[in-house]
């Protein structure tokens, strides 16, 4: 209960902080719209030449791209700003103030900042998913629920990956670039995972499980996701969360502050 109240309070403060910058909120609307076009249009141009790619029609692929936009939005909204704040805290020693508080440091550290302009990416993602669905038979309730659950589980898995990257900053200090590399790998999730072959596909399903966040929910909406794959997604997420928690505790025990 105390944790829930804490989460609510943190979210309120983060939102108030972010609401100060109204002009950039609007500028980001334009940038967000353009980057959405930059992601969806190539897909349309490729499908201009062929009906199906790796077993997916255009509208089916749109579902994947929609979930990808949602993922980008969620990560940009709540994950990335916080984790870069932690890296900065480790470098400057500002993390001192955080670990002194009588609450879980990872929880507070993960909820300090929010970038509300990314809400446009989320809206674009919803729009693209609906666009895809408009030309497909409407999914059953169970299928829709599975898709939502898998997507949320996948978000947690992504968060865990980011925490793992951040943990390395306790040793190497300057790792913000590493998170850009992670962004670049996650980029591969914008297409259906069957587009990739061999070990690349395995890598995107298990190691950096971005396929789980984008392709699996889409498959669930299409009614093509076996229960086995759904379970696999949940298991991978739990394993990643546990690993990241252990890594965080280990990393925090190594934290020596900046001056000493």
């Amino acid at each position: 209960m105390r944790e829930l109240r804490l989460i609510a309070a943190l979210a309120r403060v983060a939102l108030m902080n972010a609401a100060q910058y109204r002009a950039s909120f609007l500028v980001d609307l334009v940038t967000g719209a353009v980057s959405t076009v930059g992601i969806v249009l190539p897909l349309a141009l490729v499908y201009n030449h062929t009906e199906r790619i790796a077993g997916w029609s255009f509208h089916e692929s749109l579902l994947v791209t929609g979930f990808f936009l949602l993922l980008q939005g969620a990560v940009g909204l709540a994950v990335e700003p916080n984790l870069s704040a932690i890296v900065e805290g480790v470098r400057s020693g500002a993390l001192d103030y955080l670990v002194l508080k009588p609450v879980d440091a990872q929880l507070v550290a993960s909820m300090q900042r929010i970038a509300p302009a990314k809400i446009w990416h989320l809206l674009a993602g919803v729009g693209v998913v609906l666009w895809g669905l408009s030309a497909l038979p409407s999914p059953s309730l169970v299928a829709s629920l599975t898709a939502v659950v898998l997507f949320v589980v996948g978000l947690f898995a992504t968060y865990a990956l980011w925490v793992l990257v951040i943990c390395t900053s306790f040793w190497f200090v300057k790792v913000d670039n590493l998170s850009y590399l992670l962004v670049a790998v996650v980029d591969a999730g914008r297409w259906p995972v069957t587009v990739y072959k061999g070990w690349v596909r395995l890598f995107l399903t298990v190691v950096i499980p971005v396929a789980m966040v984008t392709s699996y929910p889409a498959l669930a909406l299409l009614g093509r996701l076996g229960p086995w794959l759904a379970v696999q997604g949940v298991v991978v997420a739990i394993v990643l969360l546990v690993i990241s928690r252990v890594a965080w505790l280990l990393a925090l025990s190594r934290y020596t502050s900046a001056s000493s």
């Binding site: 670039n177 590399l181 690349v200």
Partner: peptide, 29 residues
């Protein structure tokens, strides 16, 4: 740092995966 920056420009490879799956052994245009 520079190496990581360079490696982030993966978009051509991501596009290659899509196009080559679209061609699927045959030709496209």
């Amino acid at each position: 740092e520079v190496a990581v920056w360079i490696l982030t420009a993966t978009l051509p490879l991501v596009m290659l995966a899509l196009w080559s799956a679209a061609a699927d052994g045959g030709t496209l245009g």
